[in-house]
Design a protein around this nucleic acid. Structure first.
Lengths: 342, 342
DNA sequence: TTGAAAGCGCTAACAA
DNA sequence: TTGTTAGCGCTTTCAA
C-alpha cells in the first residue's frame, strides 16, 4: 500500500495552521459545538474548504466514545422487508452523518452471539438495529448491554420494555383486512400464519380472527394453518401452502402472513386450475414488489418500512440516549384485485 | 455516554500481560504474522480467549493503512439486483473479516462526487464497489484515485481498463434467449432497451438482434424501443411500456431489459385483454423474485449477482492489490411459461 | 523471533 | 471563548 503516501489528507492541525487557530477550535467547529464565536467559525470554515479537510472517523472513534457507525444485524433470506430496511436505514444514517454497516447472515447459523463477537463487536458501533428474529435473542442482548452498545429492536416478542422497540400496527392492518373481506362478501376464511416465533404472527392472526368474530362470523368458518418449526407437518413454506388446499372449501378467502406466502398460494391455486379471485380470494402482508405484478394483483397491508428505519436510526443517533420506549407506526390496507368477490 | 466505562474491553496490553509477552507479539498473533513461534502463538491464543479480546478496528485503522471497511456506493431505486448485491457483498465481507458500509442515495442527486466527499470519504474505506451508473462517473474515479481508495466496477461502460471491472456475460444470455424464442417458433420481436447509459443495455440489445438475424430473422421483424433520458418520447418506464403496445403486431415476442420492465409489459398486456403467452411472449432479465410469481411465470436470464459480489469483495480485500483486469461471469437462461408458443 | 519507542488524528478534561 | 495536555489502542520502524 503506497496509496497512503500519495496524498496526505488534511488534518485538524493543517486546518488550524491555515486558519491561525488551535486544532481544538477547528474540532469545535467541525463538531458544531456552540462555544465558538461567529468570526472564528467563519475563518475556520474557509480553511476547511481551502484544505479540503475531511475528518478521520477512525481517529475520532478512537479518541471519543462514538464511532458514527450503526449496525444492522439480520439473519434472513431474501425478503422485501429487509431490502427496504437496508436502503432506508442507509439513507437515514447518511442524513445524520453516520454510516450503516450491514451484517447479513444465512439463516440457521448456530448462535447469534458468536456472530456478533466475531463480527460487529470489533467495530464498536454506536448502536445496532435488531429486526426479528435476532431481536428476541436474549443472550445477544445481554452481550450488547455488557459492551455498552445501544440497540433498537423491531417487533420484539420478548421483554419489549428492555429497549426501545418499534412496532408496525399489525393488529390494525389485520383488522382492516378482515373488515374489507367481510364487506366484499367473503364468509369463509383461512389464515396462514407465519413463523410463530415472530411476534407479529400471533398479533395478525388474533386481530384478524377477533375482528371476523365480532362481525358475526362463525368460528367454524375460520381455518387456522400455522407454521411451526417444531411441527413436522408444516415446517416448510411448501407444506404450509399445500395445507391450504387440503380441505379447501368453496369461496374461501385466504389471509397469508406475508406476500411471499400469498403469492405462493396464488401460484398453487393457478396450478390447480382455480379462477382467481372468483374461486378464492387471497391477501398478503407487506406490499412487496411482488404484490403489484401478480395476476390478479394482490390485496395486502403496507408496512411503513422506511419509517421504521428512520425511527430506529434516529433513536440510535440521538445524544444523549433517550429512555427506552415503545413506538408504533401505522400500516395501510392496500386493496387490489385478488380479493374482489365476483 | 457512560457506556464506555461500564466495561473496559480487553486491549492488546491486557492480553500481553496475561500471556507474559509484549503487546507487539500479541499483535503479531492477531494479524497472523508468520514470525511468531508456535509456543508463543499458543500461549497468546489462550490469553486472547481468556480475556475475550476483540481488536479495536478504529485504533487499527488509525495506526495502520487499512480500515477493513468496504463501501458499496449506489444510486438507485429499489431493485432485485441491488438487494441481492448488498446481501452477498455483506456476507463476503464477513468471511474476510471486513465490514460492508452501505451508501444508498436516491436517484437524481446532483453529483456523485459530493456524495462521496460528504459520506464515504471520511471513513477511509479500503475499497469501494461501484455498480452502474456510478461506475461511469469519471470525476468520482479521479477523486478515488487521488485519495488512494481502491475500487472495483460492475459493468462499466467507460474506460473499462481503468480498474478491475466485472461483467456478467450479457451477450450470452441475450443470445441464448433469442435462440430459445426462435426455437419456440416466435418470428416477430420487440426489444425494450433500458437506460442506454448502462453498458449492458447495448450489449443485450446487440446480441439479441444479431443472433436473430443470424437465425434468418428479417430486420423488419425486429422492433427496437429504447429508453433515453434525453429523448422526450420514452423517458419514463410507463412511456416505454406504452410504446410496446403502439403498433404491436400479432404474435410478438417481447424482450425487456429487466424483469421489472417485463412484468410491467405483462400487466399492461393483461389490462388490454391479451391472453399470455398465446398472444404475446414476454421475457425479462435478472431472474428477480417477481419473475417467479407472475402469471404466466417469466422467462428470464439469471445474473450471478452473488458471484459478482464475491469477486468484487475478494478483489478489494486482497493484499497486495492485484493489477486491474476484466472478469466475466456466466449467466443462465431460465425458461418459464411466458415464452411458450401455443 | 521478540521487544521498545514513536506516533496515527482525534477528543476529553482541564486551564486560561 | 479559546488553548493546552494527555491519551484512545493499535501499527510501524527499529533495535536486540
Amino acid at each position: 500500500m503506497d496509496a497512503k503516501n500519495l496524498t496526505r489528507r488534511a488534518t485538524l492541525d493543517d486546518v488550524a495552521a491555515v486558519a491561525g487557530v488551535s486544532p481544538k477550535t477547528v474540532s469545535r467547529v467541525v463538531n458544531g459545538d456552540s462555544a465558538v464565536s461567529e468570526k472564528t467559525r467563519a475563518k475556520v470554515g474557509e480553511a476547511i474548504a481551502e484544505t479540503g479537510f475531511q475528518i478521520n472517523q477512525a481517529a475520532r472513534a478512537l479518541a471519543g466514545a462514538r464511532s458514527f457507525l450503526i449496525g444492522l444485524f439480520t439473519i434472513n433470506g431474501s425478503s422485501y422487508f429487509f431490502s427496504e430496511l437496508y436502503r432506508a436505514a442507509a439513507r437515514e444514517c447518511k442524513a445524520s452523518a453516520h454510516h450503516l454497516v450491514l451484517e447479513e447472515y444465512a439463516a440457521g447459523e448456530s448462535s447469534y452471539i458468536s456472530l456478533y463477537e466475531k463480527g460487529l463487536k470489533s467495530i464498536r458501533c454506536d448502536g445496532v438495529i435488531l429486526p426479528p428474529p435476532v431481536c428476541d435473542d436474549l443472550a445477544l442482548l445481554d452481550a450488547l448491554d455488557r459492551d455498552g452498545v445501544r440497540y433498537v429492536r423491531l417487533a420484539p416478542k420478548l421483554e419489549p420494555e428492555r429497549s426501545t422497540a418499534i412496532y408496525a400496527d399489525d393488529h390494525v392492518g389485520a383488522a382492516d383486512l378482515a373488515r374489507h373481506l367481510w364487506a366484499q362478501g367473503w364468509r369463509r376464511f383461512t389464515v396462514v400464519v407465519g413463523p410463530v416465533d415472530h411476534a407479529s404472527a400471533a398479533v395478525r392472526r388474533d386481530a384478524f380472527v377477533d375482528t371476523l368474530l365480532g362481525l358475526g362470523c362463525a368460528r367454524s368458518e375460520i381455518r387456522l394453518i400455522a407454521y411451526e418449526r417444531s411441527n413436522k407437518a408444516y415446517s416448510t413454506m411448501a407444506q404450509l401452502v399445500e395445507a391450504v388446499f387440503d380441505g379447501l372449501r368453496e369461496q374461501e378467502a385466504v389471509f397469508a402472513f406475508n406476500d411471499e406466502l400469498a403469492t405462493r398460494v396464488m401460484l398453487r391455486a393457478r396450478a390447480r386450475g382455480l379462477d382467481l379471485p372468483r374461486d378464492l380470494a387471497i391477501a398478503g402482508f407487506d406490499d412487496s414488489d411482488a404484490a403489484k405484478v401478480t395476476w390478479p394483483t394482490l390485496t395486502t397491508v403496507r408496512q411503513p418500512v422506511a419509517e421504521l428505519a428512520r425511527l430506529a436510526v434516529a433513536e440510535l443517533t440521538a445524544y444523549p440516549a433517550k429512555p427506552p420506549r415503545i413506538i408504533r407506526c401505522p400500516v395501510k390496507l392496500i386493496v387490489r384485485d385478488s380479493t374482489k368477490l365476483s
